[in-house]
Simulated assay, not measured.
Amino acid sequence: MEIAEVAYMGLVLTPLAAYDEGMYAAMLIVRKPDGTERATEVLGRFPCAAEARRVAIAFGVSQIDARRLPGSEWRRQDAGNRAPR
C-alpha cells in the first residue's frame, strides 16, 4: 500500500521513495497550513519503497513531536549517507 500523504498536527507529510541503485531513497516533504513546503535530505536507503515511505513518515512525526526516530531493521549505513538521529 502506498502512503500518499498524512495530515499530522496541522501539517501535511508526503513521503517519497525514489529508486536509486537497487535501493529506495526515502525523503519527506512537509507542507505547512500556509502552503509553504520543505523537503528533507535523503533519510536513508531501503530495499522496498513501502519501507522507505514508512520511515519518512516516522521521521516527520518524530521531528514534529521532538522524539527520537524509531530504528529500522533494514537501514543500510553508507559512507555518504547521514542517518537521522
Results as ranks from 00 to 15, higher is better:
Ser62Val: 03
Arg53Phe: 02
Phe46Arg: 05
Thr36Gln: 12
Leu13Pro: 00
Val12Ser: 07
Asn81Thr: 10
Arg68Val: 12
Thr14Glu: 10
Gly35Trp: 12
Leu11Glu: 02
Gly80Pro: 04
Thr40Trp: 05
Trp74Pro: 02
Gly80Asp: 14
Gly44Arg: 01
Arg38Asp: 13
Ala49Asp: 11
Trp74Asp: 06
Glu41Val: 03
Arg76Glu: 06
Asn81Leu: 15
Gly22Pro: 00
Glu5Phe: 14
Val6Thr: 05
Ala79Asn: 10
Glu41Ala: 06
Arg54Lys: 13
Asp20Val: 12
Arg54Pro: 05
Ala17Lys: 00
Arg45His: 09
Gln63Ala: 09
Ala83Met: 13
Gly80Phe: 12
Val55Asp: 00
Met27Leu: 11
Gln77His: 15
Ile3Asp: 00
Gln63Asp: 06
Arg85Val: 08
Pro15Gly: 00
Pro70Asp: 13
Met23Asn: 08
Leu43Val: 01
Arg38Gln: 14
Cys48Asn: 13
Ser62Ala: 15
Val30Thr: 13
Arg45Leu: 11
Pro70Trp: 12
Lys32Met: 08
Ser62Lys: 15
Arg38Ile: 14
Asp34Glu: 15
Gly71Val: 11
Asp65Trp: 09
Thr14Ile: 05
Ala49Ile: 04
Asn81Glu: 15
Ala79Ile: 14
Ile64Phe: 10
Ile64Met: 13
Leu16Met: 07
Ala79Tyr: 10
Gln77Leu: 11
Ala66Asn: 13
Ala4His: 09
Ile64Thr: 08
Arg54Gln: 15
Arg76Ala: 05
Leu11Pro: 04
Gly60Phe: 02
Ile3Pro: 00
Ala18Val: 08
Pro15Asn: 06
Val42Glu: 06
Asp65His: 09
Val30Ile: 15
Ala56Met: 09
Leu13Trp: 01
Glu21Asn: 07
Gly44Glu: 01
Gly10Cys: 09
Trp74Ala: 05
Gln63Tyr: 04
Leu69Ile: 13
Arg38Trp: 03
Leu11Ile: 12
Glu37Ile: 12
Arg76His: 11
Ala52Tyr: 01
Glu51Pro: 03
Met1Gly: 10
Gly71Thr: 10
Thr40Gln: 10
Met27Ile: 03
Val55Gly: 00
Glu37Tyr: 07
Ile57Pro: 01
Ile29Glu: 06
Pro70Gly: 07
Ala83Pro: 07
Ala26Trp: 00
Ala7Val: 12
Met23Phe: 09
Arg67Ile: 02
Ala52Ile: 01
